[in-house]
Computed example of a mutant assay.
Amino acid sequence: MAGWNHTRVKEFLLVGLTENPNLQIPLFLLFTLIYFITLVGKCGMIILIWLNPQLHTPMYFFLSNLSFCDVCYSTVFAHKMLVDFFSKHKSSTFSGCVLQSFFFAVYATTEGIFLSMMAYERCVTIVNPLLYTAIMTQRDCIQMVLVCYLAGLINSLTHTIGLLKLDFCGPNIVNHYFCDIPPLLRLSCSDAHNNEMLLLIFSGVLAMFTFIIIMVSYIRIIIAIQRIRSAEWRLKAFSTSASHLTAVTLLYGSVTFSYIQPSSQYSLEQEKVSNVFYTLLIPMLNSLIYSLRNKDVKDAAKWSVWQKRTST
């Protein structure tokens, strides 16, 4: 077991989002509302897609998996953060902290790759509509989803194994509201330089890989849209693509600001704000973006309501 963790720290104490007692209740109510909207919106989206045959397409298959990821990675830390607003002793066991960072990395990474796969799907829909059914088969879509989850698992395992090889002999105060990898690395009494470099390299490579797929896809989409003669079809193509592009911009902007920067410029306070944005606000905003801006989803929701009324 040489080189593996010989930590003497049994638990970590979390600073939390804020130490101002006057903000505890307002923030608790705000984030509870945001988390509730996220759960209702995402679970509602999954159920709506499952119940409506007209939404049984590759686009909504990816969207239902994206919604599942949103629910999972928000839940990974949201319940702990909400409980800690009323706890004087904001603690987490060492194993609990490692598991939280592991699952958060899995779902956050998977979501980013999902967005690139959805950009590719939109590109095939608009650029090669006649070949769409041949390219986006059910088998191919399932394989793409499995690749997304596998990539998230590999990325998370890499950092988690590296974390377990470090020694933690004190201090044990995590300047965060959940156990994220960067603040944990700062507490190690071992040399965490290799871990920091792995985090920077993996985050950079994943971000660059998915960014290239998204950019190439949208460049081709823009060119294809300009060639569409029908104003109605041009507007529909732009509308479905704009929803996805908005979600991509929100997620990648905050993640890049949070992780892809040298450790010398890294600020835990900045990361707290950025994490709140992409782990709580973005999943909620995605629900609104894909429901309010998507005619198919709104029509399917109306159809479900009509079916329920007629059945009663």
Rank of each mutant, 00 (worst) to 15 (best):
D84A: 01
K298D: 10
L292W: 07
E11P: 00
L17W: 09
Q265G: 12
S74H: 06
E232V: 07
Y259S: 05
V305N: 02
I46N: 05
A134C: 05
A231D: 09
S64W: 12
L280F: 13
P26G: 07
V305M: 10
F114D: 05
W306V: 14
V127L: 00
V276G: 05
S203D: 09
T32D: 04
A2Q: 11
V276S: 12
I225L: 06
A224N: 00
K10H: 10
S95N: 05
D296R: 03
P262S: 04
Y35D: 15
R122H: 06
R309N: 02
Q54P: 00
I142G: 13
S243N: 14
N275R: 04
M284F: 06
G3D: 03
G96L: 03
K308L: 14
S274Y: 03
Q54N: 15
Y132H: 11
L150W: 08
N5H: 05
A242P: 00
S101K: 04
A207N: 08
L33P: 01
W306S: 13
C43L: 11
S230A: 00
C169S: 06
T312P: 01
L63V: 03
S311Y: 12
P183D: 02
Y290C: 01
L235K: 13
V124C: 04
F36A: 12
L23F: 02
L268R: 09
T7N: 07
I49G: 08
V248H: 03
V255G: 03
R122N: 11
S203N: 12
M59D: 11
V147K: 15
L48F: 02
Y35T: 15
S92C: 01
V255R: 02
L51H: 11
W303C: 10
P171D: 05
A237G: 07
L250C: 14
M59F: 10
N194E: 14
Q265V: 10
A237K: 04
A301P: 00
I214G: 01
L13A: 09
T160E: 05
L14F: 04
L164G: 05
K90N: 12
T210R: 02
V248D: 09
R122M: 06
Q307L: 11
T249M: 10
A242M: 06
L250Y: 07
E196P: 15
G162S: 08
S92I: 14
S156H: 02
V98H: 02
Y252Q: 07
Y60S: 10
Q307V: 03
F31S: 11
V145W: 13
E121N: 13
N65A: 08
Y60V: 04
H159E: 11
T240K: 07
F238A: 12
I126W: 01
P21K: 00
D167A: 08
R139N: 09
L166Y: 09
V124R: 08
T256S: 14
M81K: 05
L200M: 13
M144A: 11
C72S: 07
H89V: 11
E111S: 13
P21Y: 01
Y290M: 04
F61L: 10
S74V: 13
R309C: 13
V9Q: 07
L245G: 09
L146F: 03
I113E: 08
E271C: 14
S311L: 15
I219W: 02
E269V: 13
A301F: 06
L115E: 14
V216D: 15
I126V: 11
L13V: 14
C43Y: 09
